[in-house]
Each structure stands twice: as C-alpha cells, then as structure tokens.
Design a protein around this nucleic acid. Structure first.
Ligand code: MN
Ligand code: MN
Ligand code: MN
Ligand code: MN
Lengths: 233, 233
DNA sequence: ACAGGGCATTAGGTTAGCCTAATTATCAGA
DNA sequence: TCTGATAATTAGGCTAACCTAATGCCCTGT
C-alpha cells in the first residue's frame, strides 16, 4: 500500500462545550488581539486549567491558534464555526421574542442551551418566518447564513459627548433583571437619546428621549448602552 | 451535631442520556411487564453492558426498579420524568410541523435532540400557540403537563378483520422515508379504511379509503398502522 | 539583574457514558 | 438432571470535561 493522502477527515460534530469555547474566543477577540486563558475561564465559569486543556485540543483540531502564555485566536475554520453559533443564538432569541412572546430578558438563557440542539434547517426556517432579521432583540447584528457579520464602531452612552444626539443600538443581553429595567425605562434599541448632562468622577449621564422625558443612567449601566450617531448628525 | 434528617436532595437535572433511557423503558413497558437489557440496548443503539451500567445508576437514584436478570420498570418518579420527555417530544413535533412547515417524516429526529434542551416554559408556550393539541403529527397522544396520558387499545391494520371499517389513528414516527410514502398514499391519521381483503401467509391487506380508491399494504407496514374501530361500528 | 506577583500550564484525579472481552445466570430441551 | 444457547453482568479501558494543587513563565519595579 502506498501512503495515500488522507482526505480531510469527516470531522465529528462539535460538542456543546467546544461550541461555547469558540463563541467566547470570538467575543473576546472581536476588538483584535488575543483571548487570554483567564478571560475565557471567567466568561465560561470554569477553572483556568480547564481552559488550558481545551485550548490544546482545539489547536490540535485546527479551530484556534494558541500562543502559549499569550492567548488564542480563531483560525478561519474556528471563526466560521463561532459565527454559525452566534447566528443560531441570535435567530433563536429573535424567534422566541417575536413568535412565542418571550420577554427579552429571558431569551438569552434559553438560546444558550438551544443553540447546541437546533439543526441548520430549523434555524433557516425560523429566520425565514421572521423575514431574515438583521438584528436580535438586544440590537446585536445577526451573522448571515454565509458567515458575514456587520461590524459597527459603537460608543457607549457613558462616552457619548454632552450635547450630542445618538441612537441606542445595542444592549448586553446577559442579565434578565437589567433588561427588564431598561425596557421599563423605554431604553430599547432604536430609541434616540440626546445627552444633556454628565456628572464628573464616573457620575451618571442624563439623556432626553424623543418624547421629552429624561433618564439618569449611572456609569455602570451607561457603559453597556452602545450607541451610534443619530442619522442627522 | 445530631444526625440531621437529610432533606430530599436537590436532585441534579437529568442528563440527555438518562432522559433517553427513561423514555425507552417507558415505551418498552407500555404493555406491562419488564423492559429487558437487550431491548433497551437495541432501541438506543448502545451495547448491552452500557445498559446494565446505566440501570444500576438509575435504580440507585430511584428512577427505575431493577430485577437483576429480569429487567426494569419505571418507578412513579421515573414515569413522571419519562412522560415529561414524551410531552416535550410530541409538542415539538407538532410545533415544527404546524408552525414551521416541517415534513412529518423529519420532525422526529429534530425533536429527539431538542427535547433535552427546551425549558418547561418554552414547551408550554408552544403548546399554547398550538391550542393544546392532544395528538402529535403521527397520531400519538400527547401527555398533559400534569403527566396524564391517554391509553387506547388500538389494533394494527394487519390484524383488523376483513369487512370491518376502522380509522387510522397512529403511525410509527421513526422512519422518514416510510412516512413520506404513507403521506403520498393518503394514509394519515384520521383517514377511514374499510378492510376488503387479506392474503394468507402474512400477505398484504387491501383497504378502501373514503374516496373509493384502494390501497394494498404489505404486512410489515400494515403492522405499524394502528387503528381504532370507526365511530359507527 | 533579579525578586515577586500574577497568570498559565502541568500533574493528577473524578464522573458520565460509552466500548470489548470475559464471566455468570437462566431456561429450555434432551 | 444435565447441558448448551442466550442473555445479563462484571471486569477493565477509553474519551470528554471538569476539578484542585503544584509548578513554571513572564514582566515589572527596584
Ligand atoms: Mn451555549
Ligand atoms: Mn442577544
Ligand atoms: Mn417522535
Ligand atoms: Mn432524545
């Protein structure tokens, strides 16, 4: 027998854990640079040695590039897989919210489990039923089925200049209680905000809504409200 | 410290494997009696020793009763868990069929994965959106949220007496191709069938449909078509 | 140049869930 | 009653994912 060229192994499906690690690395490297062991560990709520072990396996399977003691980055293959998971997650959140009456605070947890169990076909049926949405309920862009994702440079409300008018674009989707509070305050993606004051020493930002009412937002929360310049600016 | 009474351990959530084993035991004991190791192994496509090992664990956690070398039965707790999984499975199949345009041949595989990832809340939202359906797309009864399931004594088309009229009630949901064939033939749950002939030596059954057309069904398939007497009989 | 602190990795161990091979129990037929 | 076939269990091993404790690397400040 001559040494046959091994054709690209029919790679086994990724496990739930692997899928979540890839998503973490994607999110932690979205501004460029490396994802560190401890950041991944914190995000996934596992111990650092668990991450080291997984990183070794993932680099052996070609999903990430690991520079020891530096951190990791996704390979093109890893990035494709991560974007597919993010598409699943965000389509699920959208579907649960629009079609099944879920609160936008509750969908993240549900999607975090379902994203590993749905087929490609089911996701595309949901996307179709929704009219191919481009943003999830929290304003995050949904990657296309082909693996493209919109990248916008957003500025947090905590950093928006006083006097400027911005549009709230995206909100972190992790904390149900925080999301419910924001909804009560009318702080949903798409709302227009004019920054009318900011107190010093990391103090609160005051903003006026379209209806003339105002909101005072502490810095911790304001940092999580990602905005883009209003159209007419 | 006095020996405190250990309050009922906050039992960890069941794993995917455990849930599937419980469902198998339920199905295999639905006619009474014990589920055997080899039947479970065949149904789940695992080796018999895997079943023996799992049966030991499940009887330690009180989900099944194991009589060595005889087989297993569900405890009330195991039965509750199994029925919950069957409800999830069948609601999912119904939802995918009615709301997302899935073919009735494809939904089983999809539900087999999703049943382990959906929350109680999601299932109840789906059930609500469907109007609390009582049967899944294959005619199988859906357990209630409280854990009640309808039990009907059905007779297979292969056993229905010649001359009698029956209503097709339920069809095995496991084989996509078979289900597509049945749909083509108009053999869906609810259809009325008059048995007009049966050939000897396990030969085919001939039945007339409501529209006067006839179908010839081999015994293997006829055994899987479960019927009840027509209303007016 | 080097001492620490902090982070990452290695070492070693656990549990769930599977496997194959070896052993043992059960039951039917001679 | 014995004997063989069949089915079940035990023995022993593997991989994925986690953990804690021990060790090693790297950088920064003196
Ligand atoms: Mn997840
Ligand atoms: Mn989201
Ligand atoms: Mn099914
Ligand atoms: Mn299943």
């Amino acid at each position: 027998m001559s040494a046959a060229i091994r054709s690209p192994q029919p790679s086994p499906p990724l496990t739930r854990s692997v899928e979540d690690y890839l998503k973490s690395v994607f999110h932690l490297t979205s501004q460029g640079g490396f994802a560190t062991t401890s950041d991944i560990a914190e995000m996934l709520e596992v111990a650092p040695p668990s991450v080291s072990g997984m990183m070794k396996r993932l680099s052996e399977t070609g999903l990430i590039e690991h520079v020891p003691y530096r951190g990791v980055q996704l390979t093109p293959q890893g990035r494709r897989a991560a974007l597919q998971m993010i598409r699943r997650h965000r389509i699920l959140e959208s579907y649960l919210t629009s079609k099944l009456g879920f609160d936008w605070g509750d969908v993240h947890v549900e999607a975090e489990r379902l994203e590993h169990a749905v087929s490609e076909k089911l996701i595309e049926r949901m996307a179709d039923a929704l009219g191919e949405p481009r943003y999830d309920p929290h304003g995050a862009p949904i990657p296309t089925a082909a693996g493209e994702i919109e990248e916008a440079e957003l500025v947090s409300l905590a950093a928006a200049e006083v006097g400027h008018t911005v549009v709230l674009q995206e909100v972190s989707d992790e904390h149900p209680a925080r999301l419910r509070y924001l909804a009560e305050q009318g702080l949903r993606p798409g709302v227009q905000l004019t920054v009318i004051d900011r107190q010093p020493f990391n103090g609160p930002t005051t903003a006026r809504l379209g209806d003339g009412t105002t909101r005072v937002v502490g810095q911790e929360l304001a940092l999580l409200l990602l905005c883009r310049p209003a159209d007419g600016e």
